[in-house]
């Protein structure tokens, strides 16, 4: 039997534009998801430890193949106040989704067929980054959305005290600068697609702050800590020819 109740259903919304469907690996320690987007430039890794769920019960290893497109629609119409519960019994082909609105007591139940997802296993090596910078997640989202209205990619430059996001396109250029109190091994400058940063920043509601781990010529990491876990987004670097 598997049963997990989750209070941050907004997590689904944060990853739906990157991944259309995914295996959810359910273990007694918690739920994990690791998947690459279709263009193979971004990877989403989510870990939700058992302690973050009330209740959590998993007495055997289970892989649920879930359409995030469908899950998003279900969660979206439930509203922000709803909790989401996943249940599975001994039949691995279907699972139950239960949405509960705490304010009104309304309960919506679905029986969903588990999808057979042809998913490759990804090994992500440990990386030492030149800069690991923590900034308010709402500011990060505002900067990404604002610059992306007119421009396509953003250059990140970080020094001891400030991180600068600058961007240029046909209409001209723009930049945003933010103070930070993080440690750097040295100044850094790199370019990232704004479209993807805007996607990653949809996880803003999960956490007050976001941590950017940056080095030239290795995948960049954008991390949101959630209660008893994390949502990590990796993005492939742009490299000089």
């Amino acid at each position: 039997l598997f049963h997990a109740r989750f209070e941050q259903a907004g997590l689904v919304d944060a990853i739906k534009d990157l991944i259309q469907d995914s295996d959810f690996h359910c273990r007694d320690s918690g739920i994990a998801l690791r998947n690459m987007d279709n263009s193979q430039v971004a990877v989403v890794v989510i870990l939700l430890e058992a302690g973050g769920f009330l209740p959590y019960h998993c007495d055997r290893r289970l892989n649920l193949g879930i359409s995030l497109t469908s899950l998003t629609k279900i969660v979206h119409y439930a509203g922000d106040e709803a909790t989401l519960a996943l249940k599975a019994n001994d039949n691995p082909d279907t699972f139950n989704l239960v949405l509960e609105c705490l304010q009104t007591g309304c309960i919506i139940k679905y029986d969903i067929k588990s999808r057979d997802i042809d998913q490759e296993h990804l090994e992500i090596p440990k990386t030492d980054y030149a800069a690991t910078i923590t900034i308010p997640s709402a500011e990060f989202q505002r900067i990404c959305r604002n610059l992306s209205q007119l421009l396509e990619s953003v250059a990140n430059e970080a020094s001891e005290e400030r991180i600068k996001f600058s961007s240029s396109g046909d209409i001209g250029s723009g930049s945003a600068t933010l103070r930070h109190n993080s440690d750097l091994t040295g100044p850094i400058a790199l370019t990232i697609s704004l479209k993807y940063l805007v996607n990653f920043s949809k996880a803003t509601a999960l956490s007050y702050s976001v941590t950017l781990s940056l080095s030239s010529e290795v995948p960049q990491l954008v991390e949101y800590k959630v209660e008893s876990g994390f949502a990590r987004f990796y993005f492939a670097p742009q490299i000089g020819e």
Partner: peptide, 14 residues
């Protein structure tokens, strides 16, 4: 100019 890479060259896909 710079070219967008894919993650396949950094993360292994056994």
């Amino acid at each position: 100019g710079k070219k967008q890479t894919t993650l396949g060259r950094f993360f292994t896909l056994p």
